[in-house]
Design a binder for these strands. Structure first.
Lengths: 211, 211
DNA sequence: GTCTATAGATTGATAGAC
DNA sequence: GTCTATCAATCTATAGAC
């Protein structure tokens, strides 16, 4: 971490600490101390604590959104080429897989995914507004594609089911960071890929369920 | 609110503000100001800010746990009487319905449910430890009953699916408080009962899906 | 039980030397 | 760009009068 420039080290430290302790429970002093930077460096490079949060989120969310958009567009193009409706499951895969796979992009990426998962149900307006503005276009594209895949479902019902899907997904993302609530002494928990596959199976079954 | 005693007014105000703004983003001054009480009253009645949080959670979570336990026990007893395994869907209903129905228990109850939903993926140890200790026995009973309903599923797979279920449920609980992310301009969103029924349908389909 | 007053620590932000 | 030093505000918690 210490051979990178100060701005990057602060971003990395903020990402880690915001994800682990929450935005309001993390002080600039803790961040700069972990980043081995001076306290004043945060305001010099970013302007404020809130602007640092925005920078932390944007750094990885913009590429992730791009990736999800490409995958969804590919599914839509494939469907258009064959003259059929896209399948709900392939759209879900296009949306979920890049998100969960993102955790392997690096050590900080896993913290980031946990931060994003938590932001979906964030009470605080600071975090919430920052996050929602960035993901909304992506979520809309996803939702409208699903409407084409499942035209028989009333909009309100589809919206509810998408909400359940995002909830299940964000919960997995939150807990990818730390041990989940230890409900049962399972002999061998699933690894990341199996968990992603199980999630896809779970939500696509629920989404396509008859009314 | 103002004809109740001070202790209750502080509990109500804390419940509302912790749910709306988060624990660390809520100050004792904001709480006592809303409760029309003196700043020192919190430490007099509860001892500390953290002890107030514990009191806020315990006040409603203990009765809710009791309610869920009774419902699950009733399903198990019914199954034992007929000599069959309990159905996954009836267990899910026993667990989910009291939780969501709790929102109608009063104006503060809805805030409380949002607080609980968020606590399931809480980054902060203060909130997380307090919450987990209280719900763990209840969650274990739920999980072990499900194992009897779905014995063909490997433990690790069932655990993953229960995790998805809790995620979907907690997301609904979080957003029962405030408008959800406005993904689509839906003509008429579902009301609370329809949403609960849709959730039950969604998670029971996913939980019972073939491997 | 309720109040005022304040201790004691921590916070985000900034001014100014280098 | 990086540093020291510090300001002004805020926080939880408590002591002590009533």
């Amino acid at each position: 971490m210490s051979q990178l420039d100060t701005k990057t080290r602060i971003l990395d430290a903020g990402e880690h600490l915001f994800a682990r302790d929450g935005f309001h429970n993390t002080s600039l002093r803790t961040i700069t101390s972990l980043a081995k930077a001076n306290l004043a460096a945060v305001n010099y490079h970013f302007g404020s604590k809130e602007a640092l949060l925005r920078a932390v989120i944007e750094r990885r969310l913009l590429p992730l959104n791009q990736l999800r958009k490409e995958q969804i567009d590919a599914v839509l193009a494939e469907a258009a080429a064959t003259g059929t409706a896209p399948s709900a499951k392939s759209l879900l895969r296009a949306f979920i897989e890049p998100t969960l796979a993102f955790r392997s992009a690096g050590p900080g990426a896993q913290d980031f995914i946990a931060l994003v998962g938590r932001s979906m149900s964030e009470p605080d307006e600071t975090v919430r507004n920052c996050f929602i503005g960035l993901v909304l276009p992506n979520f809309r594209l996803f939702f409208e594609s699903l409407q084409r895949a499942l035209p028989q479902l009333p909009t309100a019902v589809l919206m509810a089911r998408v909400q359940f899907t995002l909830g299940a997904m964000s919960h997995v993302m939150c807990t990818s960071n730390k041990p989940p609530i230890n409900i049962s002494a399972a002999p061998q928990p699933l690894d990341d890929d199996e968990l992603a596959e199980q999630l896809l199976q779970f939500v696509s079954t629920g989404l396509e369920a008859p009314q």
